[in-house]
Simulated assay, not measured.
Amino acid sequence: MTIAADFSILESQKEFVRRYHQHSEEEPTLPMLTSACPGWVRYAERVLGHPITPHLCTAKSPQQIMGSLVKDYFARRQNLSPDKIFHVIVAPCYDKKLEALREDVPTALHSSRGADCVLTSGEIVQIMEQSDLSVKDAAVDTLFGDQKEEEVRCHDGTSSDGYLAHIFRHAAKELFNEDVGAVTYRTLRNKDFREVTLEKNGEVLLRFAAAYGFRNIQNVVLKLKKGKFPYHFVEVLACAGGCLSGRGQAHTEDGRVDRALLRQMEGVCAATPAQPPETSAQVQGLYQEWLGGADSPTVQAALHTAYQGPGQPASSRDIKW
């Protein structure tokens, strides 16, 4: 889902810059909180509501965007009705199953649920072991026909899709004409709460944070509600350690984090080439061919969403996993 993540990051970048310009004490639009983690979004919608949900980035998650790509763009290219496609997504956590049940899907864009089935990577391993299958037995296809990637690539962030790093660099350049190379993180109260700042002549221009795990999330929420929040942007993930520690993959049979496997995955991610989403020719081509331009009205329907509050009626996505 690298292309879908590219779209999500690019739309998040544009939204942050827009929020920065619109922000005021009377109508605060900052901080912007990431919304790619379904566990965090579900908690924000079902428990927190206002004043937290207005700060959630409206860009859809990579999974949701992938659903639109498959059920709209791919379906039209193959001359298929969306309901004739059964779309399976492999994800690192069980909450991605709940994300597939969000009420804003199916959308008006393709009148079909974006993801028909979500399996965790751990479940895929179980299926392969039970069926005596090997990855080497599977041919890797591409969703976009002649638009093939030469190699597997990732984003600048070993535990997530790198929203903080990409948005930080974009905002520094767009707002202050500052070029940022390597992003330097400063660990604060624990290893899952880190800070990044852009400073010039002794003045802090941007202050971003990464908050992983519900202990850190609760501290963020408490300070935000008190109006004593110094950050412009927070990358929020429900799992301590980030997405690589998702309960759908890096865990032993007794539910504990498999440290050896986690280190191995971190090594694989670190060795995978990173590419800024702005440089993806595939994404730029899809903006034109699929959406009619990066600023077209279709972009809002295909790549953005809205959030509910605690007052909304419960639904099937309140299943306890």
Rank of each mutant, 00 (worst) to 15 (best):
I3E: 14
S8W: 04
I9K: 02
E11P: 05
H21F: 10
E25A: 14
E25L: 15
E25Y: 08
M32E: 04
A36W: 05
V41C: 05
Y43V: 01
Y43P: 00
A44M: 09
R46P: 03
V47E: 12
L48W: 08
I52V: 14
P62T: 08
K71V: 08
Q78F: 05
N79Q: 15
S81A: 14
V88M: 06
I89K: 08
Y94P: 05
D95Y: 07
E99L: 09
E99I: 01
A108T: 12
S111H: 15
C117E: 08
L119D: 03
G122C: 05
G122A: 02
E123C: 00
I124F: 04
V135H: 04
V140K: 09
C154Y: 07
H155V: 01
G157D: 05
S160R: 00
L164Y: 02
H166D: 15
H166V: 10
R169Q: 15
A171L: 06
V180D: 04
G181M: 01
A182P: 01
T184I: 14
R189H: 11
K191H: 12
E203Y: 06
V204I: 15
V204D: 04
F208I: 10
A211Q: 00
N216K: 01
Q218D: 11
L224M: 13
F229R: 02
V236N: 04
A238F: 11
C239W: 08
G241S: 09
G248E: 04
Q249G: 06
E253D: 15
D254P: 03
M265F: 09
G267A: 07
C269L: 10
C269F: 12
C269E: 13
A270N: 08
A274W: 07
A274E: 14
V283D: 05
V283Y: 03
L286S: 03
L286D: 06
E289D: 15
W290C: 11
D295S: 14
S296W: 05
Q300I: 09
G309H: 06
P310M: 07
G311W: 07
S315H: 04
S315L: 01
I319L: 06
